[in-house]
Every structure is written in C-alpha cells, then in structure tokens.
Write a protein that binds this DNA or RNA. Structure first.
Lengths: 112, 112
DNA sequence: ACAACACGTAAGTTACTACTTACGCGTTCA
DNA sequence: TGAACGCGTAAGTAGTAACTTACGTGTTGT
C-alpha cells in the first residue's frame, strides 16, 4: 500500500473537484465523471490518489464502487494548517512588538 | 502579478518547509537555504510561488529581503478545509441514518 | 449463456515542475 | 572605489504528473 501526502492529493484542481463531490455524499465513479470534463479512467486514477492519501474510502455495492469521504487525511491537513495559522499569528505579534522597541535589534535603524 | 493557488503552493514538501520556516519568524533567503538541502536560487523560486499565493510578504531590509508569513493565503485554505470537514461529517451522518432505514434506498438489500 | 454495465489498469504522450549553474544588479563596508 | 554580500532571474535538464485510448475482469439482467 502506497501512502500519499494529502497536501499533494488536494493540490490538483480536478482532483479537488472529485473529492468535493465525494465529500458531498457517497457516489460512484461514473457519476463523478459525468459532471467533469475528463474521462472516467482519469477519475479512477484521481480516486486512487485520494484513497492512498486517506481522504476517501470505497465500498463495493453490486457492480458499483461507492466512494465516501474519510477524516484521516483531513486531520493531517487540519493539524498542519492550524500550526501554520498560530505561528503566523504569533509572528505578527513579535514583529509588532519589535517596531515599538527598535533597541532590541542592533541592525541599525533602517526599519523604515 | 500572477496569482497562484495556495493548495498548489503548499503541495511541494520543500516549499512547505520554506513556508514553515517563514511562519516561525521573519527570515532571509540565505538563512532559509542554510537549513535546506537545496540551493539558494531554489529557495528564491519557492518564495516567489509563496508570494504569488499570498502566503508570504517581503520587506527590503538593507541588502536583505525579509520574508514574513501572511494570512490571506491561509484563509483560503482554512475556508476550503472547513467546508470539506463539515461536509464529510454530515455525509457520515447520512450514511449512518441510511443503515438504520434500509427502506429509503430501493437498491435492494445488498447493504451487507 | 450472452450483451450491457461499472470499473481498474496498462501504455503512451504531452505539459509542467523542481532543481541546477551562470549571470547581473543593488547594498554594505574597508 | 572596489571587494564581498544578498538576492532575483534566465537558461537548461531530468523527473513527474495528468490525461488519453485500449483492454481485461467481475457483476447484472434477459
């Protein structure tokens, strides 16, 4: 089993549309391909990547394969994004404090 | 000015490391390149993409260029991710309800 | 049993992307 | 004023990724 970075998985616009459709509710490959300007095999290949990124799950249903969204992959993205967000906020805070105390950095007063 | 999809911007592992470093606090190109196994121009090119994705900002500082994180790009990601998350949760709910009421779907009792 | 359906995968092509080295421009400091 | 620094960008290259068509497999219904 190959593991795929969920960031990479959602980077492609077409693949993001595929995932968005699956997230909205369980659906089959043909059903997804009908709404997209790409072939059915292309959708299959995108779903394979989403599977490897733990973003979707499959379930055989007669002769259909029903795809459903999965939380595991999203949790990774959530954690990373939350980290970026909080670090960005505290960086903002630090920069703001430094502009009030120019003594802290001895890099000469070229801050403006 | 070229606009870049923030999803695409954070898809590359190296670029994500560059952004993670900038998020942690303002820094220069050379400083980032010192901690990564790629050349300085490579870092410059990554920062260009992050700039176009509204994920970072620059500020000339003497002969250095100080990069800082920016919220705009992250907000897009946050909004998308939040949408995926909530839709995935409600899809889970729907699926759970359907398994208790097999009458709803006339696709014959092949659910197990 | 056979046609139709739903799907995955192999094979091939084209476009893009991440990287390198080489170069040029502005800034700092002796 | 000239050497060193910090950086962006151009040019070239190797690897990857997204797509297509063609084909094979399992399931449904007559």
């Amino acid at each position: 089993m190959v593991t795929v970075d969920p960031w990479h998985a959602l980077a492609d616009p077409t693949r993001r549309k595929v995932f968005a459709r699956v997230a909205r509710g369980p659906c089959s490959v043909t059903e997804i391909a009908r709404d997209l300007p790409v072939s059915r095999p292309a959708v299959s290949q995108h779903l394979r990547v989403l599977l490897d990124a733990q973003l979707v799950d499959v379930q055989q249903r007669g002769r259909e394969r029903l795809y459903q969204p999965r939380l595991s992959g999203l949790e990774v993205l959530r954690r990373d994004l939350e980290s970026y967000w909080s670090q960005t906020l505290s960086t903002f805070k630090e920069v703001a404090e430094q502009s009030y105390e120019p003594d802290t950095s001895p890099t000469e007063g070229a801050s403006r």
